[in-house]
Computed example of a mutant assay.
Amino acid sequence: MGSRVAPALELKMLTQAGVNPVLGLSEAKFQSKVTALATAEGWEWFHVYDSRLCPAGFPDLVVIRTGVLVVAELKVGRNKTTADQEKWLALFESIAGTRVFRWRPEHWFAIYAELTGKRN
């Protein structure tokens, strides 16, 4: 039996090797990689699993750890934020100290830096 590297550890190893492990993923899989990294780094996070049950445009992820609040809307491909999403993001941006992002797979190295605190 071979050993399997834990998903978050694999993400870290690939990222540190200069490989973007989320390019070409669906939004759901991209989100799962972001949340796996967040969890591994000690963040708590929230995602609305059924957006029909919450106000239109609420961001994909709310990520929190002592003293830090990150709000992120995730997009892949040609998808763009809607007016309702931009409204919510602007509201969060109005709260001092809240870090608000529109993350795409191409931003993986910045996402990694934000969630691990390892900035180049």
Score class of each variant (00 low, 15 high):
100 V>W: 00
61 L>W: 04
55 P>V: 10
91 L>C: 06
17 A>T: 04
19 V>H: 08
56 A>F: 04
20 N>C: 05
37 L>H: 06
81 T>H: 10
9 L>G: 13
86 E>G: 12
23 L>N: 04
27 E>V: 05
38 A>G: 01
104 R>N: 01
52 R>G: 11
98 T>R: 02
90 A>E: 11
100 V>Q: 00
107 H>Q: 13
90 A>M: 06
69 L>V: 14
56 A>L: 07
8 A>C: 04
86 E>R: 13
35 T>L: 00
55 P>E: 10
47 H>V: 15
13 M>C: 11
32 S>Y: 08
13 M>H: 14
96 A>S: 14
82 T>G: 07
41 E>G: 05
94 S>Q: 06
27 E>W: 01
53 L>K: 00
70 V>T: 08
99 R>D: 10
7 P>I: 00
94 S>F: 02
59 P>N: 00
83 A>K: 14
34 V>C: 00
67 G>P: 12
93 E>L: 12
22 V>I: 09
87 K>N: 13
112 Y>F: 13
45 W>E: 05
28 A>Y: 13
82 T>C: 03
64 I>E: 14
45 W>R: 04
78 R>K: 15
42 G>A: 03
87 K>C: 11
79 N>P: 08
72 A>Q: 02
4 R>H: 15
18 G>F: 02
79 N>Y: 13
97 G>C: 08
92 F>A: 10
61 L>D: 02
77 G>W: 01
88 W>C: 06
93 E>C: 13
51 S>L: 12
28 A>V: 12
50 D>T: 01
55 P>S: 04
108 W>Y: 09
111 I>H: 10
28 A>N: 15
37 L>I: 02
109 F>W: 14
61 L>T: 03
29 K>I: 05
28 A>P: 03
30 F>A: 00
108 W>F: 08
82 T>E: 11
81 T>S: 15
6 A>K: 09
106 E>H: 11
105 P>M: 00
44 E>S: 15
64 I>N: 10
103 W>A: 01
110 A>I: 15
25 L>D: 03
79 N>V: 15
77 G>F: 02
74 L>M: 03
